[in-house]
């Protein structure tokens, strides 16, 4: 029952529904993808973006997906969020089949995609203005949501930046805002599509720790798509390796390094060995037809 404890003292609308439906979901996995195939319309004779892809992620697990470029990692995110329905196979999140946008999701991308006409705070509040029933409550009383967004911002090291415009911020700061926007409506699942790949090495490492701290506190389910193996090993509980297009999961590796992981963790032999293992798997994945 700990999973349905409301965060920030707000009613757990989305979580209630999930809990209600738990009886019809015999699988203990929060995310389960079974034999999913996706063909994009207009791709013609090209192989499908993903084919017979199967994947399970437990509730509260931090999963990473790595693979050669163009292997359909982003497609996997679109499948999970319900932005595109699978051509074949079954995608389930929180015990329900995903047939349309699932609304309990938070997303962040390589491109922070913030709104330049809004302040940082207003950017973070954007999902609140969309998601039901928050949007109606927000219209009645902004205060609790503003407090929540401000708390989030200070947690990622942006206290006092709420009134600035996003283009006044550095790339790393913009990405932090993007993370806050992905989390402000308390999503059950966080989908991250190479969120740190456009940042410089130091900023990236800082953001790894920011993300880890946020996740340790909220324990929401995370799927991180990345091509940085160090990032994957550092952050994830499980690393799934995807094959070249048509993408499917070819191997999964459990990462049992203790939390919170710190900078020193990255220089242990165990860590290096894991990175090496995953690297080898990707080599195999590339070679696969």
């Amino acid at each position: 029952m700990t999973a349905v404890t409301p965060r920030f003292g707000l009613r757990p609308y989305l979580l209630d529904r999930v809990a209600d439906r738990a009886d019809i979901a015999p699988s203990d996995a929060f995310v389960s993808v079974t034999n999913a195939t996706l063909r994009y319309a207009g791709d013609g004779q090209q192989p499908p973006a993903v084919q017979s892809l199967s994947l399970k992620i437990a509730r509260g697990e931090f999963a990473a997906v790595v693979g050669p470029s163009g292997c359909g990692k982003s497609t996997l995110m679109k499948l999970l969020s319900g932005l595109v329905p699978a051509s074949e196979g079954v995608v389930c999140v929180a015990g329900e089949r995903v047939l349309r946008p699932i609304k309990i999701v938070g997303m962040a991308f390589q491109n922070p995609a913030l709104l330049p006409w809004r302040t940082v705070l207003e950017n973070v509040l954007l999902p609140i203005q969309i998601v039901r029933p928050y949007r109606h409550e927000f219209r009645r009383d902004r205060t609790p949501f503003v407090e929540r967004a401000t708390a989030l911002l200070s947690k990622v090291g942006l206290s006092g930046a709420g009134d600035r415009y996003v283009w006044q911020l550095s790339g790393g700061m913009q990405q932090r805002v993007s993370l806050c926007r992905a989390l402000v409506h308390d999503p059950d699942i966080l989908l991250l599509d190479e969120p740190f790949s456009a940042l410089d090495a130091f900023t990236r490492e800082e953001l790894w720790d920011t993300l880890q701290a946020l996740w340790l506190q909220r324990k929401c389910t995370v799927l991180l798509v990345t091509h940085d193996l160090v990032e994957a090993v550092y952050l994830a509980d499980t690393i799934h390796v995807m094959s070249a297009r048509p993408g499917r999961i070819v191997s999964s590796t459990r990462v049992d390094l203790c939390r919170p992981r710190r900078e020193e963790t990255r220089f242990t032999g165990e860590f290096t060995q894991l990175v090496h293992d995953v690297r080898m798997q990707i080599g195999h994945a590339k070679a696969m037809p």
């Binding site: 699932i102 997303m107 995609a113 999902p127 969309i130 039901r132 989908l191």
Partner: peptide, 11 residues
């Protein structure tokens, strides 16, 4: 990406 973020929230 922005359209994706909003659509995934049910906009």
């Amino acid at each position: 990406e922005l359209a994706d973020v909003l659509r995934s929230l049910g906009a």
